[in-house]
Design a protein around this nucleic acid. Structure first.
Lengths: 183, 183
DNA sequence: ACTTATACCGAACGCTCGTTATAAAAACGG
DNA sequence: CCGTTTTTATAACGAGCGTTCGGTATAAGT
């Protein structure tokens, strides 16, 4: 009964992971349920046993991306202002490096996230994270909107070029960004 | 004859512009030809008199974004290395501010641009621009990949928050970015 | 005035999509 | 080993998609 539930959950997470990889490469709308069926080995009936709908799959991907990051960010509260900011950016870049597919889907569906009422919770999570970022910047004497946006831009853009097996580690990248912002 | 051609071209550019705005807000795949029909005031038959296909519309949007920017960037060759880099970023941010819809579509369809053979020319334009950027950075003693990507990230991300009627001008934004990179 | 080319319409086509109803099969509890 | 619930397969659905095509009205060229 409990073992049953766990197996179900594991398979569900597997489906979401496969879907994220597929959506990242081919695009959300361009990926058909047939392709997802082939990639998972489940026929459409079995697929819908694990996911409510294609849309719900998107929400799951967004949640897996935003929720743990927000939680980690909110937990940072010890050390000097500079240490806290640096830790935040490190956590952030690490999270991105670990969720490249999720990031690609997120960036691709930005237009939907921004406008549709359905994704209000996703927008709220993002705004909450950006509020934490702004407060850590403020604690370091940085109140300029331009620097806030610049940091957001460079960090989020990392997802498009970073290689988890490359020479630069996530922490090295994060430190490099902080150096630019903090002069 | 010539006036006829000119009117046709003007209407065609108008259709592309309306399509870019629609794609930026609703997404390329999510926008139907019916919606485009309603937005332009042309029925499907008339629409296809001006555009080859929905795909061709995308290519047109990409070209309008990349080609003029690349041309302006390639023309920069006078002044000190720092002046040239600053001028490049200014031109770049100005171009983005003037093509917000195009940028949104471009970002949204990145996955397709990156992989499909159809968009090889678009990739080539983008790579050519980034090569120019790299050379201007190198002339300023910046050879670090991280700083190159950071600049790319912050500038491209500008499209998601900049307001052409806001307090910050494109040139002010560009100068702020250069200050961060050049220390 | 008559021919020709252009601008646009409206209906229909063939196809694919996400989703679901139904039912068989497998896994489990007693 | 039976009965029940969970998991998977099959087939079909109604809708919506991008595109085409025959046709009409308008304007240009002569």
């Amino acid at each position: 009964m409990a073992a049953r539930r766990e197996k179900y959950d594991r398979r569900q997470r597997e489906v979401v992971s496969i879907a994220a990889a597929l959506f990242a490469r081919r695009g959300f709308q361009a990926t058909s349920m047939d392709e997802l069926s082939e990639a998972t080995g489940l026929r459409s009936g079995g697929l819908y046993h694990y996911i409510g709908s294609k849309r719900a799959l998107l929400l799951q991907i967004f949640s897996e991306l935003m929720d743990p990051l927000l939680e980690q960010a909110a937990a940072i509260d010890s050390g000097t202002p500079e240490q806290q900011l640096r830790e935040l950016v490190r956590v952030w870049v690490r999270h991105i490096e670990a969720h490249l597919d999720h990031m690609a889907v997120f960036a691709q569906e930005r237009h939907a996230i921004e406008r549709e009422p359905e994704w209000e919770a996703v927008r709220a999570s993002r705004d909450a994270f950006e509020a934490i970022l702004a407060s850590k910047l403020r604690a370091n004497g940085i109140t300029d909107r331009l620097q806030h946006f610049a940091l957001l831009g460079m960090v989020n853009h990392t997802a498009t070029w970073v290689n988890p097996n490359g020479r630069l580690s996530a922490d090295q990248i994060a430190d490099g960004y902080c150096d630019m912002i903090l002069k």
